[in-house]
């Protein structure tokens, strides 16, 4: 297992100063992001933060209005074959041709990818318990997601792009999806780029996380760094106040009276000292889940 996302490895996705407007609404605002080869990159953000818009740019379904998008150092709009042939993608609404049967879908998709792995495809078909004769239209949500995943995985893509892969699915299917993400990157050199708002999943599988908010990247760091740098510190002050005393480095805080709980980012020692300097004592200190970090970042 190599170090994933090390800065020296080749960038697989490079987004530079990307802005996208829909009428007067700004969906992406001068966004820049680089994804390096290898590992799992989790993109998290609230509804309407711009996750899907960014992903659609990476796949060439949106043309950059300003800024640039490069995938495998190619322009996905100018060279769809070069880019899309190396990508496996499952859209948020699992768009598939409804009129096909599952085995037709497999055969049809096979024609597009020279390195299609038939053995792997039938292995997945068994593992996912898909009925080859079933019509795609008649599949349940979960089976539909599995069918879409099969076609996205069977050519062993260099980059797997999943837009909200777990939304609206039961835990069993979610496990299948996460399992296939893990299997994909266990093959060396492959990359998974996925967006989600189920943050415990992201915490489990992502090496690196970017928070997108109002069309901009707010935070982009390794999962370990994020977990290390964010702590929750509870101070007890001498006097009760109606508003939390300001401490430098605060992301968000809540509490009442004498006890106030802060979420701090980064320099923990400095933060503690700053609190103690205004006469407060640390009563509690704890690590945060990704969920809590996200809420603190976005609402703070």
């Amino acid at each position: 297992m190599t170090d994933s996302f090390s800065e020296s490895s080749t960038p697989i996705v490079e987004v530079q100063g990307l802005t996208r407007r829909f009428d007067d609404k700004v969906a992406l605002n001068d966004l820049s992001l680089t994804v390096h080869r290898g590992g799992v990159f989790g993109l998290i953000g609230g509804n309407g933060a711009g996750k899907t818009t960014l992903i659609r740019h990476i796949l060439g379904m949106f043309k950059a209005q300003s800024g640039s998008v490069k995938v495998f150092s190619l322009d996905p709009v100018k060279d769809p074959v070069g880019v899309l042939g190396r990508i496996g993608y499952l859209s948020e609404d699992r768009d598939l041709p409804d009129w096909m049967r599952v085995h037709q879908l497999v055969r049809y998709s096979q024609a597009f990818y020279p390195n299609w792995d038939s053995a792997y495809a039938s292995e997945l078909m068994d593992a996912f318990d898909l009925d080859p004769k079933a019509k795609v239209k008649s599949l349940s949500r979960g089976q539909r997601a599995r069918a879409g995943l099969l076609v996205a995985l069977a050519h062993r893509p260099e980059l797997l792009v999943l837009d909200e892969p777990s939304s609206g699915l039961d835990p069993v299917v979610r496990r299948d999806i996460l399992g296939s993400i893990i299997r994909t990157i266990a093959d060396d050199g492959r990359t998974v780029f996925f967006s989600s708002h189920l943050l415990d999943e992201v915490e489990r599988v992502a090496d690196r996380v970017a928070i997108i908010h109002h069309g901009q990247i707010m935070l982009n760091a390794g999962m370990d760094d994020i977990k290390q740098s964010h702590r929750r510190v509870t101070f007890r002050f001498n006097e009760s106040t109606s508003e939390a005393p300001a401490i430098h480095g605060t992301l968000s805080c809540e509490g009442s009276g004498q006890e106030w709980t802060y979420v701090c980012d980064g320099q923990l020692d400095q933060f503690r000292n700053a609190g103690q300097a205004i006469g407060a004592a640390v009563v509690d200190e704890a690590a945060l889940t990704l969920d809590e970090i996200f809420v603190a970042r976005v609402s703070g």
Binding site: G60, M61, P80, V83, L84, Y89, S91, D95, P97, F112
Partner: peptide
């Protein structure tokens, strides 16, 4: 164009 078709690797 549906997402599925739009992301098949063929040129226009």
């Amino acid at each position: 164009m549906g997402d599925f078709l739009a992301t098949r690797p063929f040129d226009n």
